[in-house]
């Protein structure tokens, strides 16, 4: 049986942990809300860019464009978006095991990581990321995404890579997230359509007579890198929302287990306390009885002593 001060100490430490997990839960919840806001805004931007590219393709027939056609090579570059910190349930594990799985059978020439957990994961398995972006997952900044994409698109232009893929966690709702892989270059427009809401206004709009200034190809040239920047930025915002959502759930359940543990320990503490009191009482009563018995015996002996 543990003694009382041990249990008291244990309860205190669990309470402290509970305070931390509870605070983290609160912080993740507010960050998630902010990220959700970002997803909403980014979605509009991205789908507009996508619509226009699809329109141009319809308009001009199958024009060949280096960003839209496949190349025979197999040199792949990966962007891996993982968390900035741990303590977020299965989030980091899920995304990194997907990354490991999809990268296993490809000729990966470049790895770019966003978030320090991803960076250290690849360092541990003996791959040094060619470039890593810390703190970007925490507060997505467009100019940094632009810098990253400029580097990668240039590498694609020079033929150093033949394919560009991204691994990130898509945020579906607060209860579900989905780690996923997406090919960015060459662009496959149908892939991006996933999860796109259909709006009635789009169907009403006649897209056959649109003026492209200065020319459809020039617009396409300028637009594809922007679509990619928008997509990658969106992916990072999604990952950020997922990370915080996952952490929120993990911390909520941690807080709940801490509560349960405190209850259990408090009960145990009471049992031990009661037991100690009972034992003490038994001791006192026993001692008192013994003392009474002794004094009674003495009084019985007194007269004899006096006599003698």
């Amino acid at each position: 049986m543990p003694n009382m001060s041990d249990i008291r100490f244990h309860i205190k430490s669990v309470k402290q942990t509970r305070q931390i997990t509870n605070a983290m839960h609160m912080v993740s919840a507010s960050r998630m809300r902010r990220a959700l806001d970002g997803i909403q805004k980014n979605r509009e931007y991205f789908y507009h860019a996508l619509d226009i590219i699809v329109d141009i393709r319809h308009h001009t027939g199958d024009i060949s464009h280096p960003y839209l056609t496949h190349r025979p090579g197999d040199k792949v570059a990966y962007i891996v978006v993982a968390g900035e910190k741990g303590l977020s349930g299965s989030y980091n594990h899920a995304i990194l095991s997907l990354a490991d799985k999809v990268m296993a059978d490809k000729n990966v020439v470049e790895v770019y990581t966003i978030g320090s957990v991803g960076t250290s994961h690849f360092l541990r398995s003996g791959i040094t990321p060619d470039r890593h972006f810390e703190r970007l997952a925490e507060r997505p900044k467009l100019d940094q995404v632009r810098r990253l994409m400029t580097i990668l698109i240039e590498q694609y232009d020079r033929g150093e890579i033949d394919e560009l893929r991204i691994v990130f966690t898509r945020f579906i709702n607060t209860l579900s997230r989905e780690p996923m892989e997406q090919k960015l270059l060459p662009v496959e427009l149908n892939d991006f359509k996933r999860g796109r809401p259909e709006s009635p206004a789009d169907e009403m709009y006649d897209r056959t007579h649109i003026l492209y200034d200065p020319s459809p190809t020039a617009v396409l040239d300028a637009l594809i890198p922007q679509l990619l920047i928008g997509y990658v930025y969106g992916a990072i915002v999604h990952a950020y929302a997922s990370e915080n959502c996952s952490r929120m759930a993990a911390m909520e359940s941690a807080t709940r287990s801490a509560d349960k543990m405190i209850d259990k320990l408090t009960q145990q503490y009471h049992t031990v306390r009661q037991l100690t009191i009972t034992n003490e009482l038994a001791d006192i009563i026993g001692a008192a009885n013994a003392a009474n018995a002794a004094s009674a015996a003495e009084t019985v002996h007194y007269p004899e002593e006096h006599k003698s």
């Binding site: 007579h209 649109i210 003026l211 492209y212 200034d213 200065p214 020039a218 617009v219 637009l223």
Partner: peptide
Amino acid sequence: SIGVLAGHVPMVSA
């Protein structure tokens, strides 16, 4: 540089 007023023809540009 381009300017757009109400009733402009549908157009897309970068």
